[in-house]
Amino acid sequence: MVEVQFRFREDEAVNDPAVTVDAFAEQTNATAVRIEPGDDARALLPHLDRIALVEVNFPAWTDGRGYSSARVLREAGYAGEIRAVGDVVIDMLSHLKRCGFDAFAPAHPLDPEDAQAAFDRWDNVYQATGDGRKPIWALRHGV
């Protein structure tokens, strides 16, 4: 199993083996699930209360479906860990975090200094994405 290199959660890391989205509904004792780019994250919504870990796989970092998967889960109220796995590169980190990812397990470990710079890159943001950050329009209008 690939190591989690960055994690932004206080709770104990869950390292249960993740099962596929298809299998998850049947395996009622599973607590970790892995979303591939073609999977519909909405299929998990009836089961959110027993999920402790969602891995979202990026076979290629240029396939951006995983960003929407994470947002779908967060918008439905899922508060457990969402971990980006696979081809996770420096330049994705801040955007992944904005979409609700809070753990990162890149297939190839990233330079820690470059990664930190990437996480810290954007002092402000233009959009509301449910990550708790106030977008620029909210700062402008005090809302």
Partner: peptide
């Protein structure tokens, strides 16, 4: 323009 600039969900469409 502002909404679409660095929109984190839509940079790898």
């Amino acid at each position: 323009r502002q909404w679409s600039s660095f929109h984190p969900e839509f940079l790898t469409l």
